[in-house]
């Protein structure tokens, strides 16, 4: 992974700093995202930004957001899936923060080599997100705009960390496992125990997360 400056300069010794850009316009109704936030917001080297809390009137502080991006190695969008995409706030964030000359363009190299992925919760069942399902595309396919955005910015795009059937997850007793996976994913990313190369082609990060984790730090980078 020559594109990862963090791993090159520190030879994998330093923990990765993770920025979670969280967007949920109605947090008090949240059943999946709220426990995820509660479990992960105080993790070491993880920075949570509740975008709807920071910018209730959508007046995003571009300089501040760009500074946060510079200070982290992993960028994550955490959001419910609205119309096969992010809530409006995250779109606004992309429109404003990913400026030419910062995120893209010949001089826009600020995000080069950072890891990017989306942690999303979808209402439909996993089976609905397939060629034969009601939604006709997989979740990774539906998030292609984010994938291409990351690529244009020179970031390494990881598959989405997705929860399906989010509206029934509590009733089905699936939330606890998902939240545990979420914490494991973040700590593994932080401690460089996630096998990036193996993760890249997966449909989802949490599709057998165990198989992507390695025992020791930095081993993931050696290929």
């Amino acid at each position: 992974m020559s594109a990862d400056p963090a791993s090159q300069s520190f030879a994998g010794q330093e923990p990765r700093r993770i920025l979670v850009l969280f967007a949920h316009p109605s947090l008090d109704r949240s059943e999946a995202n709220a426990p995820m936030v509660a479990a992960a917001r105080d993790l070491e080297a993880v920075t949570y930004v509740d975008l709807y809390a920071e910018y209730p009137a959508f007046e995003i502080d571009i300089d501040r957001e760009q500074q946060l991006l510079l200070e982290h190695d992993v960028i994550c969008f955490q959001h419910p899936l609205y119309w096969y995409s992010t809530p409006a706030m995250l779109k606004e964030w992309q429109d404003l923060v990913l400026e030419h000359g910062f995120a893209y363009g010949s001089k826009g190299t600020a995000l080069q080599g950072k890891l990017f992925f989306s942690a999303t919760t979808a209402g439909g069942a996993e089976s609905a997100y397939s060629a034969r399902g009601e939604n006709h595309f997989t979740i990774r396919e539906l998030l292609h705009p984010l994938e291409q955005t990351a690529q244009l910015c020179g970031m390494i795009y990881l598959p989405p960390f997705a929860l399906f059937g989010a509206r029934t997850a509590v009733d089905d007793g699936r939330i606890a496992a998902h939240v545990a996976d979420w914490v494991r994913l973040l700590t593994a990313l932080r401690d460089r125990r996630l096998d990036i190369a193996r993760a890249l082609p997966r449909p989802r990060l949490n599709d057998n997360l165990e198989s992507l984790l390695t025992a020791a730090a930095a081993s993931e980078e050696e290929r």
Partner: peptide, 15 residues
């Protein structure tokens, strides 16, 4: 209004 999620299981029942 805009952010009220759909009723629980509105989809699963159909699927």
């Amino acid at each position: 209004r805009g952010w009220t999620p759909p009723p629980k299981g509105y989809r699963t029942t159909r699927e």
